[in-house]
Amino acid sequence: MQRTRRIAILICLLLLPSVALRLFTAVYPFFNTIWLSFHDWNPAFPPQQFVGLKNFQALTRDIAVTGSISFTVLFVTISTLLEIVLGMAIALILHRAFFGRGVVRAINLIPWAIPMVVAAIGFRWMYDTQYGVINDLLYRTIEVKVPWLVDFWGARAAVIATNVWKSTPFVGLVLLAALQGVPQDLYEAGRVDGTNRVSAFFYITLPLIMPQIVTIGLFMVVWQLAAFDLVFAMTGGGPGFATQVLAYRIYQVAFTALNFGYASAISMVLFIVVGIASIIGLLLFRKVEVSL
């Protein structure tokens, strides 16, 4: 009994640094953000003042915040759908046997390995109306120039396209690993029954890798809800509030206006959005597991 107690104490002592680090870096900031969301606090003009739900009421009248919410949902939804579809196409191609497949798989990961800020700056130059490569190609082929980063929907399309280009290789890699786990015996049995490649994909491959698709989809949704660096380096949220996401709006309010209370309220909205997306994803994953 005494030895068991000593072992338990030793385990607690060994876990204490990790628990303390997690409390300091995750739990405390979370509850402190909740506390600040009910206060008006500008560190340049102390002290804190309790304002109740005033910050949350101001959110409903803030065009920048409502616009950020709408574009965040649009950005995450379209990006995730395109990443899954294109990632599946890449995975199917790389799953086939051909000469130089290992080299092609390595090249496929290059966009994902490039830092997001580097990719954003590069695409900002490529989308330039006057000397950008994309507009130059459009002009050479159909004699049209699109003001990508100064047009409302053009800037949105450019940001989403850049994000998809950057993240799709990672999704393709995950789905490729899922494809490699599908037993080949099922395909052989399907060929005996007269199934072609299309029917084999929809009736064999897709149902078996659906849990992985839902998992990577949920991961990308949660990850991209907190997107910041792409918008910061590529458009700065412009033109106007066209490409402003919630994370970037929080940065502007907190570190430009120094309104920490209002920024905390926006952070709680982002937390609620992430929570809703996570719950939906977990329900979908449980449904897929049950159906399989």
Rank of each mutant, 00 (worst) to 15 (best):
G87A: 08
K54E: 15
V65K: 06
F71Y: 12
Q48C: 12
L81D: 05
I93N: 03
F75M: 01
T77H: 04
L92K: 00
N55Y: 11
E83W: 08
T60S: 14
A64H: 13
E83Q: 15
L82T: 13
L74T: 13
A89V: 15
F98M: 07
T66Y: 10
I93P: 00
I63M: 13
L53D: 11
V76C: 07
L53A: 08
V85L: 11
V65P: 03
G100A: 00
L59P: 00
G100L: 12
I69P: 06
T60I: 15
D62L: 01
M88V: 06
F99P: 00
I69F: 09
V51N: 04
T80G: 02
F75L: 09
T60N: 13
S70V: 11
A58M: 13
F99K: 12
G100N: 13
Q48I: 09
A97Y: 09
A58S: 14
I93K: 10
I63H: 13
Q49G: 13
V85Q: 05
L53G: 05
L86D: 05
L94H: 01
A91N: 04
L94C: 04
A89E: 05
I69W: 01
E83Y: 12
I63A: 12
V65F: 12
L82H: 02
L94M: 10
A64S: 13
K54P: 11
G100E: 11
G52Y: 01
V85R: 02
L53W: 03
T80W: 06
V76W: 04
I93Y: 02
G67F: 08
I69K: 05
V73R: 03
I90D: 06
V73Y: 11
S68K: 02
I63N: 09
A58C: 09
G100M: 04
L81Y: 10
N55C: 07
F75V: 04
A64P: 06
L53P: 08
I63L: 09
L86F: 13
L74S: 10
M88L: 10
A89K: 05
G100H: 07
V65A: 10
G67Q: 15
R96I: 04
V65D: 06
T60Y: 12
V73C: 02
N55R: 07
V85M: 07
I63S: 12
T80H: 10
L81V: 14
M88G: 11
H95G: 04
Q48H: 10
T66R: 14
V73K: 09
T60W: 14
I78K: 00
S70G: 11
R96D: 01
L92P: 02
S70D: 14
T72R: 00
E83M: 10
S68A: 13
I90Q: 08
K54R: 15
L53N: 03
Q48P: 15
L94T: 11
